[in-house]
Simulated assay, not measured.
Amino acid sequence: MSIPLRGAQRKSFSNGKTVRLAEEFLAGEENALARAAAESFLNPSQPDHFSYNPWVLYGPTGVGKSLLAQGLLHQLQARDWSTLCIAGVDWAREYADAVETKSVGEMREKYQAYDYLLIEDLHEMAEKKPAQQELVLLIDALLDAGSRLWVTLLAPPTETRGFLPALASRLAEGLATPLRPPGPLVRKELLQRLATASKIKLSGPALATLVESTSGAPLELKQTLLAAAAAAHAAGETLSPAFLAQHLSAARAARRPSLRNITAKVSGRFQLKSSELKSATRRQAVVRARGVAMYIARQLTDKTLEEVGKHYGGRDHTTVLHACRRTEALLHEDPELQKLVEEIAIQLS
């Protein structure tokens, strides 16, 4: 069902307003798909671009979803497109207020007027069924009018727990692209820029050590660089490779996650409850998630096999060892699972 638009005309995007990606966002090979998707989404009339609508940009916290989205939004505004950015939870709250004040019609007219609508962190609307139902109607209206919608999520819409099937389906009719943590080349460029901006002297060998020893999102890279510089200053040392190696090793030891945190993060990404990973169930989805949790626990903590097994339902050390080996084998067979485990490990560490 779609909401009729009185006298609405399909919006034209063939007026020569070419939108470029924000210069501040660096997209390496690992994010080439997201870059191409953004360019095509914002310039659908270009003959060399593919067309789709809506666009879903998903990835773990801190990889730059908001940076990319906001940068694109600013460029659209500079070219006189009517745009709006709103958080999913704020949209749901506004809808609840509209229902209470009997002004849903006015709210619909407001949102249907935009050329581009960005809804950030739409996963925060999970379980808010009435708001999701209204959003499905709005999506239909926007697409009928030729407006363009894009949203940011932690995971693909079909894998986001708490979404109505109708909402997940509408979003899946467009294109969902992942945004991944920066690769080595982008990390090097980001660290060089951060060092210059913060007036931190960073030699080539020291930069190489940082690039090889870090794998996090841009914000994490900045925090790592600033913390290392502060530690070197306090110790009266320079940012040499030897000092950085020692500092980063100590920092990693201090950041080791707890088994509880690992369980919560893994269960969340697999759309399960933490209690399920500790249960006796042999359901395949739970077994895989439990194996991933045990594998990460062995990689990121100093817990023994016995300690890990005790946390996950009192399992013995041979069960934990088998689960870790099985998970490691799956990582070599399944690139998507490997990327998921890497993202979870980055977030935890």
Results as ranks from 00 to 15, higher is better:
L26I: 15
D48A: 11
A254Y: 00
A245S: 14
P157E: 07
G236P: 05
T18E: 14
R256W: 03
S51N: 09
T318I: 03
D144M: 01
D334S: 06
L73K: 00
F13D: 02
Q223S: 13
L219R: 10
V186M: 06
W55A: 01
R35A: 15
T177P: 12
P165W: 11
G28W: 09
S213I: 01
P241N: 00
L185V: 01
S203E: 10
V266S: 10
R282P: 09
H311F: 14
A141W: 09
V287S: 09
A253C: 02
T18A: 11
Q77W: 02
I200W: 01
E24W: 00
D140M: 04
V320T: 03
G64Y: 04
S103P: 00
A297S: 15
H332I: 05
T263A: 14
T224F: 11
A217C: 11
A37V: 09
V266W: 08
L21G: 15
T18M: 10
L154P: 01
E39P: 00
T238E: 15
G268N: 08
E336I: 13
R187Q: 08
E29A: 13
L42M: 12
L164S: 07
L42D: 07
A234H: 02
G105V: 11
Q133G: 12
G162R: 09
Q112P: 10
G309N: 04
G28H: 11
A289G: 09
G162M: 03
Q299K: 09
Q284M: 11
E212I: 05
G236K: 00
A92C: 06
G309I: 09
G174W: 07
A234L: 09
W55Y: 02
Q70L: 05
K102R: 12
H322V: 06
S14L: 10
L67A: 12
V287E: 00
L167Y: 04
P257R: 02
P156R: 00
L73V: 06
T319I: 11
E23Y: 03
P184C: 14
L73M: 11
L259K: 12
S66K: 06
D302W: 00
L33S: 01
A329I: 04
E220C: 00
V286E: 02
E134G: 00
H322F: 05
Q299V: 10
Q192I: 05
P335T: 10
A96D: 06
T18H: 13
L330C: 07
I86D: 03
P182C: 10
R269K: 05
L5M: 08
S51A: 13
T301W: 04
S40H: 10
R93H: 10
S66F: 02
R148D: 04
P184M: 15
L68F: 10
E134D: 05
A145S: 13
Y52R: 09
L337Q: 05
K129C: 14
E100W: 04
S51Y: 10
H123S: 15
L21R: 14
L331R: 12
L118F: 14
A329T: 12
R252L: 15
L138E: 00
L219A: 12
A229C: 11
P182W: 03
L154Y: 03
S66T: 13
E276P: 00
S169G: 11
S198C: 11
L337S: 03
F13Y: 14
R20K: 15
H233L: 13
L194H: 14
W55S: 00
V63Q: 05
P184N: 14
